[in-house]
């Protein structure tokens, strides 16, 4: 099934080809292929240790692959630095969210939207908080906690801030690393709503263990297993896929 090709689109938002990475003798990715079309919502699932976060780290540029290439809207970004990828429109959230804990939500928001240049040394930082940014923050429900220190935020609010920071960048491709992990049921509902309301032009690639959410949000789902792409298809196809049920759903649910 690894050679399964989705419908051909002229320029994919993300084209991962033959990506491989090992740490010493531990192979964490071997020959991973992934093609995501613009505007698509793609779920990425797999058991723990399947190599999902490693794949994210390679796509975002934080980890150098041993082999393979990464295309981004038709451009080869395999050798680009993290900043270069960010500036080209690639945004990501982290599994363990940290940001800048000692300062407030507002100050963190002021750090969003880096443009690759040195920010002002003279203007007050508040000058970076424009209406656009505050609207994003408000949509993500951050208005009540703007003056709270990030270190004091609840886990759910932290995820929302995390998302606001990334959304503020107006990324073309958004990598979400387990956005729902650790959230209460109610918080998940909020998050799901937020993700559903994302502008259509934002392409989404999401690692998530909450199958309900993945199935509800994704146009297509890819399954990573032991460092390889094991299956890919629509939510219906994946839920019906016997192999996937065996290795993933079976274990996850039982």
């Amino acid at each position: 099934m690894t050679d399964a090709q989705p419908e051909m689109s002229p320029v994919p938002a993300l084209e991962v080809a033959g990506l491989a990475k090992s740490f010493g003798s531990l192979m964490v990715a071997s020959d991973v292929h992934l093609r995501v079309t613009p505007g698509e919502r793609r779920g990425l699932i797999g058991v723990n240790g399947a190599g999902k976060t490693t794949l994210f780290n390679m796509i975002a540029g934080e980890l150098k692959p041993d082999r393979g290439s990464i295309g981004f809207f038709g451009e080869d970004i395999t050798r680009d630095s993290v900043i270069q990828r960010t500036l080209k429109g690639l945004g990501r959230t982290y599994q363990v969210s940290t940001l800048v804990p000692s300062v407030t939500v507002r100050e963190n928001l002021a750090l969003a939207r880096g443009d690759g240049r040195l920010p002002s040394l003279w203007q007050p930082w508040q000058s970076r908080l424009d209406d656009d940014l505050m609207t994003t923050a408000d949509q993500l429900g951050l208005t009540p906690v703007l003056d709270e220190a990030v270190a004091n935020l609840s886990y759910g609010t932290l995820r929302q801030l995390e998302l606001a920071m990334v959304m503020a960048q107006k990324p073309r491709l958004l990598l979400l690393d387990e956005p729902a992990a650790g959230l209460s049921h109610a918080e998940r509902q909020v998050l799901q709503g937020i993700l559903q309301d994302l502008p259509q032009e934002v392409t989404l690639l999401m690692i998530e263990h909450d199958m309900e959410m993945v199935l509800a949000l994704s146009d297509r789902i890819s399954v990573l297993h032991q460092g390889e792409m094991f299956a890919e298809g629509t939510p219906e196809e994946i839920s019906a896929h016997q192999g996937v049920r065996d290795i993933y759903l079976g274990r996850a649910n039982g």
Binding site: S81, V82, I83, Y94, G116
Partner: peptide, 12 residues
């Protein structure tokens, strides 16, 4: 506090 993140946010 979070160098990696600043880089990912597009700061030099």
């Amino acid at each position: 506090e979070n160098e990696q993140r600043m880089r990912a946010l597009g700061h030099p």
